[in-house]
Structures are given as structure tokens and as C-alpha cells.
Simulated scan of single mutants.
Amino acid sequence: MTNQHYGQFCGLARAAEIVGQRWTLLILRDLSVGPRRYSELVAGLPGIPTNTLATRLKELEDEGIVARTAPSGTERSVVYRLTARGEELGPALDALSRWGAGGMREPRDGEIVTTSSITAALRVATGDGIVPADWDTTYNVRVGEVEVHLVMRDGTVVADPGLVEDPDLEITAGPGIRDLLAGTLSPQDALATGAVQIDGDPALFERFANALHVPYSPSLAI
């Protein structure tokens, strides 16, 4: 851990010392989606200096938040994963993501989306992940070059990277999906304007839009 200490016996101060360093929250976001090799972390965090990534991983290991799995069998790379202590950060990461998204409408110049960022965004959008128990629907979602899938089943919603075969609905979208998730763009208008394209039953798209929600902050004039 760095030498930056706030000199306060305070939970928030201690948390800030651990996760408040540059890139740390995004490393944790990517690992919350699933274990990653070092090369996968580099690829999923464009712009991160490799020495910074190595330093942050070492700091998180020292804090018991991240663990590494040594290569074995045919696996030749070290794999990093969250520990049980690291997984406790999940609700805090989701809350920060939701808060940040409240002030986001369109990407700024140079901003991109990644597989982990979209997967995490959909996870946040599911809220408590509770849907009617009789729903059993699988979606493939493409946003730019990013591909993820989402499953509504047994009263829960789960988002994961990658596509699945034979989904119930294919969704292709650009930045306009943000307005859909905020509720300022209806499913009908999203399709009519071309902000979102689908392959499948429009009723399942309405189900998608009704189940996922990340509102804009009411305190901002967006």
C-alpha cells in the first residue's frame, strides 16, 4: 500500500487508503466480473501503465482483497481473483457505479466501453435482480464491439461476458441504450429511432427495458 494515510481511525478513511488509488476501482470492477489473467486485465483497461497495474495488484494482494492462482496443468498464466474480503466490496462498487451513471448521458471524447464496463453496468441496472419467477429469458447484448449476455430466470437477473447460443432476443445498441436504461427513452421509441435494434419478439425487449433501470440523477439538469 502507498504511504498515503489520512491519520484517522475511520472506516471511510481506511477504505479510501485501500481503494482510492488511481485505477484501483476499475481493477476491482473487472475482477468482480470474473477472474482475469494479467494480460486480460491489461487488455480490459486501455491506458493503464503496466507498472501501475502490477503495483495495484500487489497492494490489493497485501490487503487480502485479491489472490493469485498459480499456473497448473495446461494453464500457463497466473490468474487473479477477488477473495471473500474483496467480494464484500460488490455492493459498494455497484453503488458507486450507479451514482456515477446518474450524471452520464453520452460518452465524452475518447471514452470507450469494455466488456467489463458493460457487464457491470447491466449488473447495476438489475438492482436487486428480482424479476417474476416465471420469467425465463436469455438476451445477447451487443454495444459497439462489446458482447455480453443476460439471463432472467427463477426470479433473478444475471449478466456475464460473452454471447450464448440461441438466445431469446438479440439486442444491438449504441450510446442510446443509456437513455433506455434511464427510462427517458421508451422501448418503442428506441426501436423506431434506431437507437436499438433487435432480432426477436419486441415484447421481450419491453421486458428487458422494464427489468433494468439506471436513472439519471434528479438533482442534475441533464
Rank of each mutant, 00 (worst) to 15 (best):
M152H: 08
G183W: 12
V143G: 03
T138E: 13
L12K: 07
I48H: 10
A195G: 13
L191R: 06
V146G: 08
G20I: 01
P175L: 12
A54E: 10
L60F: 02
I177L: 12
G44F: 02
T126M: 14
P107S: 11
A173Y: 04
I27Y: 00
K58I: 07
D30Q: 13
A13T: 03
R123M: 02
P107C: 11
G129W: 13
P161E: 07
P202D: 12
D166V: 06
P161T: 08
V66K: 01
L28K: 01
L169Y: 02
P71Q: 13
P35S: 12
L31Y: 00
S97F: 05
G129V: 07
R76W: 12
H5P: 01
I18E: 00
D134Q: 14
V146Q: 13
R68P: 02
A221V: 13
E147L: 09
A16M: 06
P187K: 10
L41P: 00
V148E: 02
A173K: 03
A173R: 05
L212C: 10
Q8D: 09
S116W: 00
M1I: 04
D109M: 11
E87Y: 12
T126Y: 08
R29D: 04
R14F: 04
T74K: 14
S32E: 04
P49K: 11
G34T: 02
Y80G: 00
L12F: 07
A209E: 07
F9A: 14
T193R: 15
L204H: 14
E106W: 14
I177H: 02
M104K: 11
I48P: 01
R76H: 15
G200E: 06
A159F: 00
N140W: 09
L31H: 00
L96Q: 03
I222E: 11
A84H: 10
F208P: 03
I171T: 06
V214E: 04
A16S: 09
T115L: 08
G103T: 11
V19T: 03
L220V: 15
I130V: 15
Y6R: 12
V164M: 07
V164R: 05
G183N: 10
L185V: 13
A203Y: 09
D160P: 01
N3R: 15
R178E: 05
A54D: 12
Y6F: 15
R108P: 02
V151D: 04
